[in-house]
Design a protein around this nucleic acid. Sequence first.
RNA 1: GUGGAUGUAGCUCAGUUAGGUCAGAGCACCUGGUUGUGGUCCAGGGGGUCGGGGGUUCGAAUCCCCUCAUCCACCCCA
Length: 423
Amino acid sequence: MDFQPVKGTRDFYPDAVRVRNWLFDTWRRVAARNGFEEYDSPIVEYLDLYTAKSGEGIVSELFHLTDRGGRDLAIRPETTPALARMVNARINSLPRPIKWFCIQRLCRAEKPQRGRSREFFMWNVDVIGADSTLADAECVFTAVDFLREVGLGPDDVQVRIGSRPLVIARLRAAGVAAARIDAALLALDKRPKVTQDEFEKLARGAGLTAEQTREICGFLDADPRAALDEMRCDEAMRPHVERVDELLAALEAMGAGDYCTPDWHIVRGLAYYTGIVYEAFDAAGSVPRAVAGGGRYDNLLEALGGPKVGATGFGMGDVVLGILLDQKGKIPPEATARALEYFVIDGDASRRTAVLETVGRLRRAGLSADFSYAGRPLGKQLKDADRRGARRALILFADGTAAVKDLATGEQHDTTVEALLDA
RNA sequence: GUGGAUGUAGCUCAGUUAGGUCAGAGCACCUGGUUGUGGUCCAGGGGGUCGGGGGUUCGAAUCCCCUCAUCCACCCCA
């Protein structure tokens, strides 16, 4: 029998777990300093939670199962519906704004490829109970704060900010019927990825006339900030323009302006987004997928049986991010280094018991310590120490003295176990 | 779900074109180079039914068919 990992899943050997832990630690640290608290939800939910509002895209990729009571369940493919469920359950007792984050393992049954696996981790950061654009700004800032933390600058990654209501208003102004808006948005999303001919075909397929397509292209291809200025004069557009203005101004004030740029192509695939939306991309374009994405979803809590409460947030997956970090060489050496403090060695077979005693004392004092099981020559034990990734070797000599050797520099000096414990 | 490419040791690959010492290399791993010092070096060793199954042939990693898996693109999405 030859067993393989299930399609689209990954094994994490210790070196990969070290990198993953570094990533999670960084996510947690950044979320915490931005004022978000960690929560978590179950790995399975009732299927209905997702079929209700997430949209066809998610539902078609669900891993679903039936429990022994005949209930339809799904392995969570995203976090947001469960977050909405949890918040709805306590909406009257939670102080607002609710600023929560989580790091979750998610599953989607899509075809695995570069940047996409069937099991992955996502960092989710949300603000619930605030209609202010400052909530969106905080989410974008948190994403940018993380990118900067790991050494990705504005030349590496750009957050492209769009506005669904703004684009919808623009489409309506061009005479696009309400029923065709969703299809038109999908076509717009493809605009940067296809040729003019292909785009025109997509637009035709979405039910736009040649005239409407020309008008939309004029809008999309113009400088986004200039388009913003132009629309500011239009009474119907103004509220949406002002939200974008406020967001960009807030990000500028917080010092994240250089990471952000308006881009009306960004409309997002999930059905529940209602307002400002954004995606973070590799600026060089060598990673073709969004590193992170999010936006405002003001109707989701209500749609899941709660009150009408404004909400906004983003998700960042580990797969695309991992490719980008790897490509840019941004995974620091300390993320891959092992952290064994002492490797205790006997300089003579008579000290074997002393090695055990010393290892025990170090460990009980909270210091990491390891040793060789087999009695071996000193040189071999040092080799073991090196291969176990120890920072220092502690050598116990036959005459009762001890020395600590820094394995990186080779420096060695006499010491006692007591001195190490006091240090 | 659709199309394309690829599957030889843990990893990176050679060998497949014209079937016959073709089961190999480097790295990794283990052991030794012995009794007070590692990361170098030297020697030795373990490990692959050549993705799996069937077929053609005296003979198949090599040719044919099927299948599985992986990767890439589409779709959708983080």
